[in-house]
Design a protein around this nucleic acid. Structure first.
Lengths: 140, 140
DNA sequence: CTCAAATAGTTGCACATGCAAGTATATTAC
DNA sequence: GTAATATACTTGCATGTGCAACTATTTGAG
């Protein structure tokens, strides 16, 4: 079954690395990495979640999230609070400074995405999202 | 322009990390990382290319490729040869052992991809590839 | 209730990543 | 032909990644 010449892994990694590099360069002025931005952007959407939940949302291991959150706390963008009902768990709060930063960065992320979507119809974008989401589900 | 709820970066990184993790677990029995496999698979397709060309093909910086090739050479899967016409350049050759390894691994990679494509029609797969390739081009 | 298993989190390791700065060679400008 | 620029590659650094092994707490089986 030679469906097309290129493997999924190669296609995905090339595209992911390109997007990540471009995002990384844009984020230098904010002294953030794409991964750090990804986590505070998620906390901006859903505050007061546990590290475990944040790991699941962003498809990373808890251990990875621990280390990135360490850096976000050091930068004053996130605080760690205890869960009153589960003393093992840590709940994360985004600070006002964190929210401001996300607000500043979001339009610049959109610029990059708009450029990536050059020549795409709205239908193409929706289809692409649907297919990628389905891929992701199958890989769970 | 709020096209859909999820950002491209989040979708892409989640899916990429999932696929990479599953591939990584499969490759443990071969003592290879997904990135190492990716490079020798590319060399299996096109032998005797320079590190620069390999970097471009896989969308990585030359510096990253240098380091992964170091490991492949140590494992005896790749050799470095000099370019007779350009003494700066290094040309890479995959060894017989390297080719055998790629041959063994390829069907297992296809298994993972087939699982990822569960519920996809052939048309969906082709469309997905076309859209991702277009994304990648726009990001160049 | 008690003890085993599961869960949330952390730390140490090896590897991937890319930028900055370096060397060596090739190309281009004049 | 020589000097400036570009190119191929390498090394050092900081960060992200996930597995293994660890602690602390909660859940569940009996």
């Amino acid at each position: 079954m030679s469906r097309t010449q290129d493997e999924l892994g190669l296609l995905l990694s090339r595209t992911y690395l390109s997007l990540k590099r471009e995002t990384s360069r844009m984020l230098q002025q904010f002294e953030l990495t794409p991964e750090q931005f990804s986590l505070i952007a998620e906390l901006d959407k859903q505050d007061n979640i546990t590290q475990k939940e944040l790991a699941d949302l962003t498809e990373r291991e808890q251990t990875t999230v621990t280390k990135i959150v360490d850096k976000l706390v050091k930068k004053g963008l996130v605080t760690r609070g205890h869960d009153p009902h589960d003393r093992r768990a840590i709940r994360l709060q985004i600070t006002a400074e964190g929210r401001d930063l996300v607000k500043d960065i979001k339009p610049k992320i959109e610029e990059i995405e708009n450029h990536a979507y050059l020549g795409f119809h709205q239908k193409d974008i929706e289809l692409l999202h649907t297919l990628i989401r389905k891929l992701h589900q199958n890989l769970q």
